[in-house]
């Protein structure tokens, strides 16, 4: 199945929920509204046969006041990849969990909850995974403040002073 066909199938089934859809580097990239992410994932898994969730990562689009969950989905039987993006508002970052579809989503979603504060409904065991359980705040958010965190002094650096590898 080519990326165009994948896009077509998703679009014909979930016309209302798609925000953008494009093919980039041979991958189908779809941005969806977050409220039906579970159904779209189930469609991709069960009807398109893309049953392998490579990666699930959160992104904080603080300029848009939105959070994003990116599903990288592929298959072990056919080539092609689907990059599925679900956007949720920053002040209420809640999505349906996809753990019933993929066991691997369990820890990925816990990580997104841990570092971004994105909450996943119906997750069997949503608690922090990498940080201590009493940690306050979500470090990968762009507005995260911590007195121990020292930003890299970019302003002081002269242009072009980034270390560059040399050839022998």
């Amino acid at each position: 199945m080519t990326a165009e066909e994948i896009l077509q199938q998703i679009q014909s089934r979930f016309r209302e929920e798609i925000r953008t859809a494009e093919v980039r580097r041979g991958e189908a990239c779809v941005t969806i509204k977050a409220d039906r992410n579970f159904e779209i994932c189930r469609f991709i898994k069960e009807e398109l046969g893309y049953d392998y969730l490579n990666c699930l990562s959160g992104v904080d689009w603080t300029a848009d006041k939105e959070m994003e969950v990116v599903y990288a989905i592929s298959s072990l039987k056919q080539p092609g990849k689907i990059i599925l993006r679900a956007r949720v508002p920053q002040d209420e970052p809640v999505l349906r969990s996809v753990v019933p579809l993929w066991g691997t989503a369990n820890w990925h979603e816990r990580e997104a909850f841990d570092l971004f504060g994105i909450r996943f409904e119906n997750h069997p065991d949503l608690r922090r995974i990498l940080l201590p359980e009493d940690w306050i705040g979500y470090p990968l958010r762009k507005d995260y403040q911590d007195e121990r965190f020292v930003a890299y002094p970019w302003e002081d650096r002269k242009p072009g002073s980034v270390p560059r590898p040399t050839t022998a």
Binding site: C55, S57, V59, G103, T104, V162
Partner: peptide, 30 residues
């Protein structure tokens, strides 16, 4: 196993978001 890097670039010299899909993290979850 599958070592994946998910990089979001915003046009600057630093990645906007940089995620490592660590194979052992995923394998261990099984």
């Amino acid at each position: 196993g599958e070592l994946g890097h998910y990089i979001v670039a915003d046009g600057s010299e630093r990645p906007y978001r940089y995620k490592v899909r660590a194979p052992t993290f995923v394998n261990l979850s099984a």
